[in-house]
Design a protein around this nucleic acid. Sequence first.
DNA 1: ACAGTATGGAGAT
DNA 2: TCTCCCTACTGTG
Length: 286
Amino acid sequence: MPEGHTIHAIAGRIEHAFGGTRPEVSSPQGRFAESAALLQGRELVSASAAGKHLFVEFTGDAVVNVHLGLIGSWVVHPGPAALNPVTGQVRLRIAGELATADLRGPNVCALITPEQQDAILARLGPDPLREDADPERARTRIQRSRKGIGELLMDQAVLAGVGNVYRCEVLYRHRVDPFTPGNALKRKTFDAMWADLVRLLRIGLTYNQILTMDDQIDEAEALIAAGDADTVQTELTGRRLGEHFERRFWLYKRTGEPCLVCGSKVRSQVVAGRNLYWCGRCQRRH
DNA sequence: ACAGTATGGAGAT
DNA sequence: TCTCCCTACTGTG
């Protein structure tokens, strides 16, 4: 269930739970056992995210690089390992007195060096969730490309952290035809979509849920303004995953159903390896 | 029991 | 463009 907001949320929880401590590191499943043994007894310095990549840094220039892929998950449970029995395929477990974090089904779980981490960072486009993101890098690449914007948004070298739901929904929110060539996309349109992604991903990160409907966004921002966000971000496990708001989108997985604005049937087609949903009437080149 | 699905991406062809 | 990997859960027989 991971787009960039999920990965940043996990990094925050890992750092909050284990930063500055020397947790137990193990691989109940066995597939990361050798590396886990090397990390045992070291201090966990920090956890951070870039796009959909997660980095957990330990002392001694050891970095665990995790990529959840399509089906991975990393859940931080309250309480020590003794109170959290292993179930299923746990590739990596990090456990301390206060929390236990179980990683399952990752696409990547590897022990790397800081240099290798730099190499990964270098090939990622700007991440709307990072303060150091430079949207001009993404804009330049898009405006030099003849590929459709619906394809470019999924290219992590162009823009890091956006996945299939945010791609479909942000294009709809700005009424942009997904097949608009990058070099035909207006600068103003890109700037507006980038600003929107920054906003949407932040809300998604805070509530552990992708929200793209205006009424839900307004409600979430009101809760954040009222201080609710502090509660959410300091909880070990975050909000009960996906339960805080009703699951509802403009287009995502609504093939054949009426567009919520014009009523014409939502269309879908595989683009960049995943199902793209769009409205052929509302979304235009601009 | 088995098939199908999932907010991803790499490598082969 | 296809094929494969990773895991858990849902629906069907």
